[in-house]
Computed example of a mutant assay.
Amino acid sequence: MFAPFRSQASAYGRVQVETTVSSADPHALVVMLFDGALSSIAAARGAIQRGDIEAKGTNIGRAVRIVEEGLRGGLNRQAGGELAENLNNLYGYINSRLTHANLKSDDAALQECHDLLAGLRDAWTQMQQAPRKNAA
């Protein structure tokens, strides 16, 4: 009875995300990647608590892809110098901890990854706001 509505709502959600991504500036896109990874980690932690192995794996896999393909893959290691290299290493470490968390259902490892990514997201957001504050 409600299946068509769910399908329409899902399609609307996809269009909304696509519209947001296509109109976002590069800085906002990185924030969206951090938010997606953090959301996936939170969902994986909930799945561990519920004993839902499939959802745990799906959400950790999503977080790994975001970190690897979105955040790590977007680094310009030649132009970014030492900072880009340090971020590359940190993203590699986060992905190894996510993989460990998936294999061992280790909530503490997920919390560690969440804390690291949340700190990076906060720093990234502050960098984005700094030019606006200086301009004012």
Rank of each mutant, 00 (worst) to 15 (best):
S23W: 06
M127N: 08
V64N: 00
E112T: 00
K104H: 09
R97H: 07
S96A: 07
K104M: 15
V15N: 10
D107T: 12
K133Y: 06
P131L: 11
I66C: 01
Y93P: 02
L33S: 11
I60Q: 02
N134C: 01
F34Y: 15
S40A: 15
L33H: 09
D35Y: 05
A11I: 06
E82A: 15
G119L: 01
T20E: 14
I41P: 08
E18M: 14
H100G: 06
Q78V: 15
T19Q: 09
Q49Y: 13
L117T: 02
A11P: 03
G36T: 12
A55Q: 15
I66D: 01
A3T: 13
W124P: 05
V15H: 10
R6V: 08
Q128S: 11
G57D: 08
N89S: 15
N134I: 11
V21S: 07
S39P: 05
G61F: 06
L120R: 04
L87P: 00
S10E: 10
E68H: 01
A79L: 07
L110V: 10
Q129K: 07
T125C: 03
A3W: 10
A84Q: 14
R6A: 12
L71E: 02
I48M: 08
I53Y: 14
E54Y: 14
Q129D: 14
L38G: 13
V31F: 05
M1V: 04
R62Q: 14
T99Q: 07
D107Y: 12
I48C: 03
D52S: 09
N134M: 08
Q16G: 01
L90P: 00
G92V: 03
Q129S: 12
E82H: 04
C113K: 00
E85G: 03
G36H: 10
S22E: 12
H27L: 04
Q16A: 13
R45W: 09
G70Q: 06
N59A: 06
V64D: 00
S23V: 06
S40P: 03
A135W: 06
A123E: 07
E69Y: 09
A136L: 11
Q128N: 07
A11W: 04
E112N: 03
A101G: 11
A109L: 11
N76T: 13
L120W: 00
S10H: 08
Q16H: 12
D106N: 11
G92I: 00
D35L: 12
G73M: 14
L120H: 01
A42M: 03
Q128Y: 08
I94A: 03
Q49V: 12
G119S: 08
L87Q: 03
G80K: 12
N86I: 01
I41D: 13
A44V: 06
N89W: 05
A43Y: 08
A63L: 06
Q126S: 09
L98W: 00
N89F: 02
S22L: 12
Q129F: 09
S7I: 13
R45P: 02
L116P: 02
S39C: 11
V15P: 03
A55R: 02
I66L: 03
Q16K: 11
W124R: 05
H114P: 05
A24C: 08
S105G: 07
A118E: 13
L83D: 11
L98M: 04
H100C: 11
K56F: 14
G57L: 08
G46F: 01
H114D: 10
N102S: 09
G57C: 07
L38W: 12
T19K: 02
L116N: 00
L90V: 01
G119C: 04
G74Y: 07
